[in-house]
Design a protein around this nucleic acid. Structure first.
Length: 373
RNA sequence: GCGUCAUUGGUGAAGUGGUUAACACGCUGGUUUGUGGCACCAGUAUGCAAGAGUUCGAUUCUCUUAUGACGCC
């Protein structure tokens, strides 16, 4: 069975929506945040710890799994779920982002993208068909079309060609797709331009995918305004009965803004990455737990947080772990940060039910940005 | 007791008779948005053992003292 989205309720004062994703591995309430396990692992966490954070879908990366250990090995292991011991839903990225983020030199042609492995420099060639074939074997529940993820600085002219090629790639990928248990998403591109987003969205929807992603946001210093424009210009053309996924976004305020604009699911490396670098999300803004001022702070990261780290450890201890380079520090902070974002989406769902999401946003931002300033 | 050599920031250390004393670690801030990450960026010695002298000018030359290493009675 292919995962299916069910729209439950639309919030009265915004475009926010409450929904449910029915998958082979259980239902997921949306809006939802998905943590990222790039190489079929959430850095530093066991699968039990990830589950305890309240997250449902885990994202794994096609490019990284393709290079190591290789999709055939994962296939023989029984697919990603068995391989990484996760009995919940898994989403795989197409590799399009890696082409953008880690290939120093790349050769984009109609056929696909030629670039060099970040591991050994060997020549790689990724095509829409290849990306889908790998994802089919990985056996994720959600697969992404292979797209071009252009930089935020890309011109209107460049993007116009790029989104058209991405559309052709989407069609090829859809044709190649062959896994009856896997949903396939199309990706809307077009930078911050209304005409391009509209065109990309309409044409992608014509191909009738199982869900729609909004891509190309939050790249290399794109402004918040441009990100919100990208969402606002894409959403109106997406069907209500399909799930909407804003790729790569995970700053708490961006999640709130995304939900209000009609986005259902998000993923981001932010909670785990900043955790490994010593930072924690809190209601009162982001804090640097490796700061000297926490040296003798024997309180939890957040007093009223129900995560494993907050229930059992103090700021001073976590600071110590970070300070001496014990990976447990990053693990505990990852748990807290993932829990923070899943809790945020729980509250957003509640706000949608109560039709007071705009008030929720106001109060959240007021508190979140107060202490930071 | 005598002789030789050393003494530079929190640490390991480069270095020069003349505007801001290299670099590394540490420390202190910050950055991070479909994860190439124990990453990245920035700041961090008004002072070169102490005192005196030579000099226009000394951390760099000279002397004395202190401390240390090695060698000799």
């Amino acid at each position: 069975m292919i995962a299916k989205y069910e729209l439950i309720k639309e919030e009265k004062n915004s475009k926010a929506r409450l929904g449910k994703l029915h998958t082979n591995y259980g239902d997921c309430d949306t809006p939802m945040f998905m943590p990222v396990g790039t190489r079929a692992a959430l850095k530093g966490l066991t699968i039990e710890q990830v589950k305890e954070c309240g997250s449902r879908v885990i994202l794994a990366n096609t490019y990284h799994c393709w290079l190591r250990p290789g999709e055939d090995i994962i296939d023989r292991a029984g697919g990603l779920h068995k391989f990484m011991n996760y009995d919940g839903p898994i989403l795989t990225d197409s590799g399009g982002y890696q082409v953008f983020s880690l290939a120093k030199s790349k050769d984009i042609s109609e056929e696909g993208v030629k670039f060099k492995s970040h591991i050994d420099g060997s020549n790689l060639f990724l095509t829409p068909e290849k990306s889908i074939e790998i994802q089919n074997k990985l056996d994720s529940d959600f697969a992404m079309s292979f797209d071009e993820c252009p930089p935020a600085s890309a011109s209107h002219e460049y993007l116009e060609n790029s989104i058209k090629r991405t559309l052709r790639w989407a069609a090829r990928g859809k044709k190649a797709h062959n896994n009856p248990n896997q949903a396939l998403f199309g990706i809307v591109q077009g930078g911050p331009y209304e005409d391009l987003r509209k065109y990309s969205a309409i044409e992608t929807v014509k191909m009738d995918f199982d869900g729609y992603s909004i891509g190309g946001v939050a790249n290399d210093g794109e402004s918040k305004e441009d990100m919100y424009k990208a969402i606002d210009y894409s959403i109106p053309y997406l069907p209500k009965d399909k799930v909407r996924y804003l790729m790569g976004v995970g700053d708490p305020i961006d999640i709130i803004e995304g939900v209000i604009r009609g986005v259902d699911i998000f993923d981001c490396v932010l909670p785990t990455r900043i955790a490994r670098h010593g930072q924690a999300f809190t209601r009162d803004g982001k804090i640097h737990l490796n700061n000297n001022k926490f040296k003798e702070d024997f309180t939890p990261i957040e007093a009223d947080c129900d995560c494993y780290a907050c229930k059992n450890y103090t700021r001073a201890y976590i600071r110590h772990l970070l300070n001496v380079g014990e990976s447990l520090g990053g693990s505990l902070l990852s748990i807290h940060n993932i829990r923070f974002l899943t809790k945020l989406t729980e509250e957003l769902r509640e706000a949608i039910k109560n039709d007071n999401i705009l008030e929720y946003r106001e109060e959240f931002i007021k508190r979140y940005e107060k202490v930071n300033k």
